[in-house]
């Protein structure tokens, strides 16, 4: 009877666990409270795994450089971009965005970029953090 795993697990006990303890080592009683404390500087947060360069996170929009050409709307697979005729600018719904960054590729003025920010979960899809304009 060959059990190669037994050797493996005995060796592993003495090694560091591979888990990244993000955001805390054990689940805090309330995550929202914990994050508030982190914001107030009372608790420390374990950082998430670092993102590589050119990571595609939450979209960033430079409103002033935009010329309102609507090209980004034509290539957005998720229909996440809306044109506001009054201001001739766009509004991006992050909750709908699929982070393909195709709008960045097509933008003739280069006013759309992707940031490395990826902690975007919230309960309200129209929250301030979920709309870029």
């Amino acid at each position: 009877m060959a059990l190669p795993m037994i050797r493996e697990i005995f060796a592993q006990v003495f090694k560091r666990p591979a888990t990244n303890p993000f955001p805390a080592r054990f689940l805090p009683p309330s995550v929202t409270e914990f994050l508030k404390k982190v914001g107030a500087g009372e608790a420390t947060i374990n950082p998430p795994v670092a993102t590589p360069p050119n990571f595609r996170g939450k979209i960033v929009y430079d409103r002033d450089g935009c010329i309102g050409c609507n090209l980004c709307i034509r290539v957005c697979p998720a229909h996440a971009i809306e044109f506001i005729p009054e201001t001739k600018r766009i509004r991006i719904y992050v909750a709908q965005c699929i982070f393909c960054s195709q709008c960045n590729d097509i933008c003739p003025k280069g006013v759309l970029t992707m940031s490395p920010e990826f902690l975007l979960a919230t309960e309200d899809r129209f929250a301030e953090s979920q709309i870029v304009e």
Binding site: F10, Q12, V13, P17, A18, T19, R25, F26
Partner: peptide
């Protein structure tokens, strides 16, 4: 806990 450490996890408290 021990089982978790054998699996390279931290495990529950």
């Amino acid at each position: 806990r021990i089982s978790a450490r054998m699996q390279a996890r931290i495990g529950p408290p």
